[in-house]
C-alpha cells in the first residue's frame, strides 16, 4: 500500500534538448511561394520576369520599410497582449513637426522662418521625441487610467491625426533641406529598417526588456507576482512603439521631401497585419521580429506583384484583407493546438 510509483510519468532526463521547426520557416515558405506564383503569373500574363528586376525589388522593399519600422514597434506591443492603432496618425504628426524643423532657408513661407537650415539631427530628434510622447500618453492611459489598449490608441489615432492637420491648417510642409532628405534617399530607409529590426530582435531575445515583454503578454498577473513592474514596463513598451512610429514619420517625410497631414493613412493596419502574418499572436506572449520582417515582405510582394500584373487597386485590397484574416485563422488554429497539448 505504501508504494507510490510514478508510472503516470515518462521519465525523461532534463538534459535532452529538442528543437522544433520555428514558425518563421513556414512563413518564409509562404513568402517564397507567393513570389514564385507572381513569377509564373508574370510570364503567363506579361511575358516578363517578376523577380529578375532589381529595380522593382528595391522599390518594393523601400515601400515596405516605413511600414516595417512601425510594425516592429507594434510587434512588441502585441506581444504584451496589447494593440496600437495610433501608429499611422503618429507618423503623420511627426512628419509634420519634423518637416517644419527641416525647411530650407530658400523657402519664403517656412513654418518657422527663424528655424530654417537646421542640421539634420534636430528634426530627426524632434520627430522621434514627438512620437515617443504620443506613445507615452498611450502607455500612461493604458497603465494608469486602466483603459483597454484598443480604446486608448484609438483615441490617439483620431487626436494625432487632428493635431497633424491643425499644425499647419492642413497645408503641406515642403522645401526641406538636402541633408535632411538624404535620410530618405536611395536605400537608406531599408538600411534604417533593417538596423531597427536587428536591434529589436536582440532586445526581445536577449535582454530583460524582452523577457519581461513576453512575460506580461503570457500572464500579466504572474508577471506582477514575479516582481515585474508591469505598469512601468507597459509604459516603456508603448513609448518605444511611439518612438518607432516617430522614426517612421521622419523617414517618410525625408523620402517624400515634404510633410503632409494625410501621410501614413491606414499604416497602422498594415503594420498590425505584418506582425500577425509574421506569427505574432494577438493573444500575447508570442511573436518574433524575424516573423514581422517576413510578414512585411509578404505585404510588399503582394503590392508589387499585383501592380506588376496590372491588377486594380480595389482587388488588391480585397486580397490583402483575405490574407490578414487567413493569418489570424492560422494563429487561432496554432493556439488551439497549443491549448490542446496543455
Amino acid at each position: 500500500m505504501t508504494t507510490t510509483t510514478d508510472k503516470t510519468h515518462e521519465v525523461v532526463t532534463p538534459k535532452a534538448r529538442r528543437k522544433k521547426l520555428p514558425t518563421e520557416v513556414s512563413i518564409l515558405i509562404v513568402l517564397i511561394g507567393i513570389a514564385v506564383l507572381f513569377e509564373i503569373l508574370g510570364w503567363i500574363v506579361r511575358g516578363d520576369s517578376f523577380l529578375m528586376n532589381p529595380q522593382r525589388l528595391l522599390i518594393m522593399i523601400l515601400q515596405m520599410s516605413i511600414i516595417g519600422i512601425i510594425a516592429i514597434g507594434v510587434t512588441q506591443i502585441i506581444i504584451t497582449g496589447g494593440i496600437d492603432l495610433s501608429s499611422g496618425s503618429v507618423l503623420a504628426l511627426t512628419a509634420m513637426v519634423t518637416a517644419s524643423l527641416a525647411q530650407s532657408s530658400d523657402y519664403m513661407r517656412a513654418v518657422y522662418p527663424a528655424l530654417t537650415d537646421l542640421p539634420w539631427l534636430i528634426p530627426l530628434a524632434a520627430g522621434m521625441l514627438v512620437g515617443a510622447l504620443c506613445g507615452l500618453v498611450n502607455g500612461a492611459l493604458i497603465s494608469f487610467a486602466v483603459i483597454p489598449p484598443f480604446i486608448a490608441t484609438l483615441g490617439m489615432m483620431v487626436s494625432a491625426r487632428g493635431l497633424a492637420r491643425a499644425y499647419t491648417d492642413g497645408q503641406p510642409v515642403s522645401m526641406l533641406t538636402e541633408q535632411f532628405t538624404w535620410i530618405g534617399s536611395g536605400a537608406n530607409p531599408v538600411i534604417i529598417f533593417l538596423a531597427v529590426a536587428v536591434l529589436f530582435h536582440i532586445a526581445l531575445k536577449h535582454t530583460r526588456y524582452g523577457k519581461y515583454t513576453y512575460a506580461i503578454g503570457a500572464n500579466p498577473q504572474a508577471a506582477r507576482v514575479s516582481g515585474i513592474n508591469v505598469r512601468r514596463h507597459l509604459v516603456l513598451v508603448y513609448t518605444i512603439g511611439g518612438l518607432l512610429a516617430g522614426l517612421a514619420g521622419v523617414v517618410a517625410s525625408a523620402r517624400a521631401g515634404t510633410g503632409q497631414a494625410g501621410m501614413g493613412l491606414m499604416y497602422e493596419l498594415d503594420a498590425i497585419a505584418a506582425a500577425v502574418i509574421g506569427g505574432t499572436s494577438l493573444a500575447g506572449g508570442v511573436g518574433r521580429i524575424t516573423g514581422t520582417v517576413i510578414g512585411a515582405l509578404i505585404l510588399g510582394v503582394m503590392l508589387s506583384g499585383f501592380t506588376f500584373l496590372g491588377v486594380d487597386a480595389y482587388y488588391q485590397d480585397i486580397v490583402k484583407g483575405a490574407i490578414i484574416v487567413a493569418a489570424v485563422i492560422t494563429d487561432q488554429y496554432r493556439q488551439r493546438k497549443r491549448n490542446k497539448t496543455a
Binding site: A215, A218, N219, A222, G285, A342
Partner: peptide, 8 residues
C-alpha cells in the same frame, strides 16, 4: 492564474 506563463 497567477503563477504560470503557459505559453512560455
Amino acid at each position: 492564474e497567477t503563477g504560470l506563463f503557459l505559453g512560455l
